[in-house]
Simulated assay, not measured.
Amino acid sequence: MNDFLLSVHVLAAILAVGPVAVAASMFPPYVRAAGAEEDTGPRLTAMRLLARICRVYAVLGALVPMFGFATAISMGVLGDPWLMVSIGLTALAAAVLVALVLPGQERALAALSAGGAAAAGFDARRARARLAMWTGVFNLLWAVVTVLMIVRPGASHGA
């Protein structure tokens, strides 16, 4: 049962978090380019698609910790320090995504849809920089969690 739960947990992480990481990383360059153009139609279409991918897969990403907790309970490692740190970093990554990345994407889309850089003093360069920064933080947190899940500091692996 452990192998099954672990496999589902890893597959959920790859299939749910991976698309968010990629789509969120692709979004900021579109913000800058769309802010500098008169005809933003094609770029806005791409940005809407990327934002939708992020939103949909963020919801599916809730499966990752669900299967992770089931796996940890099954394996008897729920109280291990490496796992507790991973849980905390996962919660932080989710908070960055939900509180900073997704709303930033929505604000950029709203401003660019309403007329680009002229819309309410929208600064495309600043918006791009913030989105890129928070997306990088999100991706870095997931990278650290992935390493912790593989290395499991202090856990006995067997040689």
Rank of each mutant, 00 (worst) to 15 (best):
C54E: 02
V56F: 01
Y57W: 06
A58P: 06
V59K: 12
V59A: 10
L60I: 01
G61R: 03
G61D: 01
G61L: 01
A62W: 15
L63F: 11
V64S: 00
P65S: 00
P65I: 03
M66N: 08
F69Y: 15
F69I: 09
F69M: 13
A70C: 04
A70V: 05
A70H: 05
A70Q: 00
T71M: 13
T71Q: 13
T71Y: 13
I73P: 10
I73V: 13
I73K: 13
I73S: 11
M75D: 14
M75E: 14
M75A: 14
G76K: 06
V77D: 04
L78V: 14
L78W: 12
G79H: 13
G79R: 09
G79F: 08
D80F: 12
P81G: 05
P81V: 03
W82S: 12
M84H: 14
M84G: 13
S86F: 02
S86C: 00
I87T: 15
L89W: 06
L89N: 00
L92E: 03
A94S: 06
A95E: 06
A95D: 07
L97T: 01
L97S: 02
V98K: 12
V98T: 13
A99N: 10
A99P: 09
A99Y: 12
L100A: 12
V101G: 01
G104W: 13
E106D: 09
E106H: 15
E106R: 14
L109P: 00
A110Q: 10
A111C: 03
L112S: 01
L112W: 00
G115R: 07
G116L: 04
G116Q: 04
A117E: 06
A117R: 04
A117M: 05
A117S: 01
A117G: 07
A117V: 02
A120K: 08
G121W: 00
G121L: 05
G121T: 00
G121P: 02
A124S: 14
R125G: 15
R126Y: 14
R126Q: 15
A127C: 05
R128K: 15
R128G: 15
A129D: 14
R130D: 12
L131Y: 06
L131T: 02
A132C: 09
A132L: 14
M133W: 15
M133P: 11
W134L: 09
W134F: 14
W134D: 05
G136I: 11
G136Q: 10
G136M: 07
V137S: 06
V137T: 00
V137W: 00
F138P: 09
F138I: 09
F138D: 08
F138A: 01
F138S: 04
L140A: 07
L140R: 08
W142E: 07
W142F: 11
W142R: 01
A143S: 13
A143E: 01
V144D: 05
V144K: 04
V145Y: 04
V145C: 02
T146W: 07
V147Q: 05
V147W: 03
V147D: 05
L148E: 00
L148A: 01
M149P: 07
I150G: 08
I150R: 01
I150Q: 08
